[in-house]
């Protein structure tokens, strides 16, 4: 498998704080990778650099063989990286359908075609029956799925998911895990997720990258990573095993 996304020695500093410190890893096409680590480890900063919200102070980010670091978020999305936000931000006054149509319009000029695509995506994420509802009146689990739907509607090659399971009940978590796994299997969508919910990480990820204080302290197959001493000490704790 060739690498779809490659992060090489990427760093980001906010004033005195080194938020991300020379992090490197690669995500192969079709893979489901997870980034885990304690709060403040730099996971979201890393995501924001991949998604173009921040440009890295050092290092390179390559997507599909092209450098993308420093590009604005909209161009990165157009190249095929869709993202969700840790704190969900659907368009509150718009209906569920219109939220997803906005995403679908990125690659489609015609609203009718975008609506048809949006319906497909909403069906996938069990949102179709709620399509007329305003986003602001939805429950958190629904809003989280709406974020995923909007990102998916842009037809990404790589989907960045920033804690989409946080705050969900186990059944809701399993529901999203199932949906994501199916999409990955059927369309070969590559997924990179940040997640604290280890239940979801272990069920989904083929490979885990562990960040601590901005640095990559461990990486590998899930079963190996959760037994890694540095990971247990810094993040999971002994009782996790």
């Amino acid at each position: 498998m060739s690498a779809l996304l490659s992060v090489e020695g990427v760093s980001k500093r906010f004033r005195g704080l080194l938020a991300v410190d020379k992090v490197s890893f690669e995500v192969p096409e079709g893979g489901i990778y997870a980034v885990i680590g304690p709060n403040g480890a730099g996971k979201t900063t890393l995501f924001n650099m991949i998604a173009g919200v921040h440009s890295p102070d050092g290092g390179a980010i390559t997507f599909g063989g092209e450098r993308i670091d420093g590009l604005p978020p909209n161009e990165i999305c157009q190249r095929g990286i869709g993202r969700t936000f840790q704190i969900v931000r659907p368009f509150p006054a718009l209906s569920v359908e219109d939220n997803v149509i906005v995403g679908a319009l990125m690659k489609r000029r015609d609203v009718t075609a975008a609506r048809a695509h949006a319906h497909e995506v909403m069906r996938r994420l069990d949102l179709y029956d709620k399509r007329a509802q305003r986003a602001s009146s939805m429950t958190l689990p629904d809003r989280k799925r709406l974020e995923v739907a909007r990102a998916l509607a842009t037809d990404p090659k790589l989907l960045l998911l920033d804690e989409v399971m946080a705050g969900l009940r186990p059944t809701e978590t399993d529901r999203i895990v199932g949906i994501l796994r199916d999409i990955n299997k059927e369309s070969g969508l590559t997924i990179l997720l940040i997640e604290h919910v280890m239940r979801a990480v272990m069920a989904l990820a083929q490979h885990i990258v562990v960040l601590h204080h901005g640095a990559n302290i461990a990486e590998g197959a899930p079963q190996a990573v959760v037994r890694d001493k540095a990971v247990i000490d810094s993040y999971l704790g002994a009782e996790a095993i």
């Binding site: 931000r89 509150p92 990125m106």
Partner: peptide, 9 residues
Amino acid sequence: DEEAARSAG
């Protein structure tokens, strides 16, 4: 939401 709009391409 301008930032979310940008992230949607």
